[in-house]
Design a protein around this nucleic acid. Structure first.
Lengths: 118, 118
DNA sequence: AACCGTACTTACCCGAGGGTGAGTACCCCA
DNA sequence: TGGGGTACTCACCCTCGGGTAAGTACGGTT
């Protein structure tokens, strides 16, 4: 508890949306889940080069709380947990596409590099 | 110097766009300038309830560096500085509208309050 | 018996982002 | 003469987001 002071009050819609997406890895998680449909914890970890397990768990939990991500646990002996997007997660992703295009255009403009997976 | 480690490398376009918008007041500044066209420093300060002068200057400078904001100084005796959006600022604002709509919808869903201007 | 892989939790630490409050130079107005 | 308005700068402080590293319970592999 005392985890987050989220859920407003907000200045505007942008503010409310940013609250949910702010976090170093959240847009990437969103994209990864949108791209693959369903991902297990370790798959996500491998898909986000550089993320720590702590942050991945933490972000996933917050996104679950915010209704963006669905978490399904299989009570098997080697643990198995599957993550996927809810309809709200999907629609958020859609709302982010134009921003993504703007960012891509900006990267082109300023000649920024992409992070390499190494 | 040593001001910002911005300008990538980025994971993706979202990342590049978020870099430019991340900052407590930046989306609000963007909106305020889009809404009024041209604003002076003190007008912006009054338009963003709660912002400190330090943060306002700092954000405006970064947004100027990032090519979002145009800063015009009039060498008058009571200082006069006018801020407005560049074409990149305008297009970023446009790219943010769908996100803003998503956020507004989310506020409605969770029943979040708006910040009151007092 | 030792080690890897699953999906985490816990404790600790650091730097940056942001807030507070003061100072600056000049003018206008009461 | 003093207070308010213009647009800032500077120094200090403090929270918190994020990183590192270790521990956990269980089984399959070598």
């Amino acid at each position: 508890m005392a985890a987050s002071a989220r859920r407003g009050p907000y200045f505007c819609g942008i503010d409310a949306a940013m609250d949910v997406v702010s976090g170093k890895w959240k847009p990437l998680i969103l994209w990864e889940l949108h791209d693959h449909g369903i991902r297990r914890f370790a798959e996500l970890r491998r898909g986000l080069p550089g993320v720590s397990e702590k942050m991945l768990v933490q972000h996933l939990r917050e996104m679950e709380e915010d209704g963006l991500v669905r978490r399904e646990v299989y009570p098997e002996v080697p643990p198995k947990v599957e993550y996927s997007l809810t309809e709200h997660g999907v629609s958020l992703n859609a709302a982010l596409t134009s921003l993504g295009e703007w960012g891509t255009e900006r990267m082109r403009r300023i000649g920024a590099e992409k992070v390499s997976v190494g």
